[in-house]
Design a protein around this nucleic acid. Structure first.
Lengths: 345, 345
DNA sequence: ACAGCCGGTGTTATCGCTAACATCCGAAGT
DNA sequence: ACTTCGGATGTTAGCGATAACACCGGCTGT
């Protein structure tokens, strides 16, 4: 009640300056102000300076809502992502937001609990309500991918981590190549074969890694052991690890991500199988702390910043020329060699 | 050129239905449609139904830009957060987005590379350009906190993880209580004292945890060993751990987060000091994989979902009644007991 | 020297919505 | 029976920008 509200009151009384206020101060029409703001060529240099001075003096800020209304598009990019704190998705999101900010776009994130058709569609519709310039969908599962079919043509869309066979604009990391490199790295160390603990079966990342693993074994003429299915969690890795630790013939394991690998390391440790002396382990992701696992984890690093840049690029290209270019970009991952791999005894 | 662009063309020709289209179809004025949309009381039930039917038939979606233009506020909440993949901030952000979506607000995230004054201000200004309804700043350092002073009154703002002494709306986790519980847990196990590897000194979370640790020691009449300063990374934990491992008198370590603890575990392991037999370790955060460290980590869990809910609540309260209520909310953390703590030998 | 053009600027219409006021009508009060 | 009232609805006027066009003057080409 008695609190000082002078500033707040002032704020209510004198509204923010609008384009006409700037125009009046600069002695031009509001249209000329608009031209200066949008870098139109046909403005005299002197006029331009006068207008800029007036803008600075008033602290004028363009009203994006008004601009969006008349142009029909906002400088906003909608992202649909799963509500997870998994390292991969979280990094990707952060990288994309940074890239978009660099290009002058704000990012509105529509988190989705489940990657099912209905949830994704709802998130997309919310973004369309906001008249976003374009939409990025992180669609790492088949169900998410399917939902994209419902997005009407004319809305710029880029998919990240979607079905590599998808014909629409898409950016993916070459999971197969990463898994191939990881598996080959183990074979090259002298292991007769490599076991694979995979991610959830409905994720494209998972199946890509499984394929790369299998291909590396086949190319080397190695036996392909049964797949050990899991999800992305350390717990699932631990459970898979408990089983693998009991099998003396297992000397090399490729885990579909670093958290699985962590669980495997723990299980091996508990059963007295030393890593890397008895069993070699390779992960995927290169989470920042992977270097400090016991032992330091050899893994595969994905360049999320590159993925984000490419995705933004593809999206802005669509925004610019309207057509949905049939473009795909693939980012190559890199093997990071640390201490969890050694030749078998 | 020859690609089928039927849908795109149609999209350009027939624009999205607007309120007047709905009005015409329902045989009412656009204003009545507006009233139905905004749940105004004075609309006959029958009219309401007719309008709703027309909305459904046309697939009408209100234009948020137009609404924002006339009301001066968008249904958008701006969040300023550091561009990091640290578990805490990432979880918090995800939780907040979910909470906001539940309340019908979209979230625009302004990532910031550094938490300095200028960067934060720029992010805030960007949000103000979008005429956001309110702004949430995750301001875990003093410099971030300082930047808040520049935000003009009248803009609803809530700070998360800011200076606990800050007089403006703020939500924090009670770091001191968490650290106190962690330290006391170690003392109760029989340790004579507890060493602390702290986070970066300019973070409020760090200093809160240091204070809680110190207070627990003092309350127990235990000696307060020198602080071991670090940052949030596993690497820093590893380095601190290498030093601590060499000191036989160290039997209990409280790490300011789980990643530091991971590095410490690794260093202890390398030096042959067993955890928990020789040294007990407690972390902070309860990252999902902490349970699968070697050994499973005893740690302190923060309820980010609760923080997000409270922050949203505080923000919406400000949006509603305009005044900046002087409110603070504190969330209590919980100790999660696992296998990394044992009595000293 | 005169039509034609084009660079620089102003005028007007418009985007799709909400706020404010105007209007109509039937029920209630005296 | 005649105001009075208030519920249901329509009409009008913006919000603050861009788009489209109109206009004015000087420079060019022949």
């Amino acid at each position: 009640m008695s609190r000082d509200e002078g500033a707040a009151v002032e704020n209510k009384t004198s509204r923010d300056p609008a384009m006409t206020d700037v125009a009046r101060l600069a002695g031009v029409s509001h249209q000329t102000v608009s031209r200066v703001l949008n870098d139109h060529p046909n403005v005299r240099e002197q006029t331009r300076l006068r207008v800029r001075a007036a803008i600075a003096e008033l602290g004028y800020r363009p009203n994006k809502a008004a601009r969006a209304l008349v142009t029909g598009r906002s400088q906003l990019i909608g992202v649909v992502a799963q509500n997870s704190t998994l390292y991969g998705p979280a990094s990707l999101l952060a990288a994309f937001e940074e890239a978009a900010a660099g290009a002058g776009f704000a990012v509105s994130v529509g988190r989705v609990k489940e990657l099912d058709h209905a949830s994704i569609n709802r998130a997309v519709e919310r973004h369309r309500d906001e008249r976003v310039a374009g939409i990025v969908v992180i669609a790492p599962t088949a169900s998410a991918n399917d939902a994209l079919a419902d997005i009407p043509a004319g809305v710029p869309v880029v998919t990240i981590d979607g079905d590599p066979a998808r014909p629409t604009p898409l950016v993916t990391v070459d999971q197969q190549a990463g898994a191939y490199a990881a598996t080959k790295h183990l074979l090259d160390a002298g292991h007769r074969t490599v076991w694979h603990v995979s991610g959830p079966p409905n994720w494209f990342d998972s199946s890509g890694r499984v394929e790369g693993w299998r291909k590396a074994l086949e190319d080397a003429g190695a036996e392909v052991p049964p797949l050990v299915p899991a999800d992305w969690s350390a717990r699932a890795g631990y459970q898979a690890g408990q089983m693998l630790a009991r099998m003396p013939e297992v000397t090399a394991v490729f885990a579909a991500n670093d958290h699985l690998a962590l669980g495997i390391l723990r299980a091996m440790h508990e059963r007295g199988r030393r890593v890397p002396e008895d069993v070699s382990v390779v992960g995927f992701d290169d989470v920042p702390e992977a270097e400090f696992f016991i032992p330091p984890l050899t893994t595969v690093r994905q360049d999320f910043a590159a993925v984000a840049r490419e995705a933004l690029d593809l999206l802005l290209a669509q925004v610019a020329d309207g057509g949905a270019a049939d473009t795909r970009r693939t980012i190559a991952p890199a093997l990071i060699s640390r201490g969890s791999v050694a030749p078998p005894k």
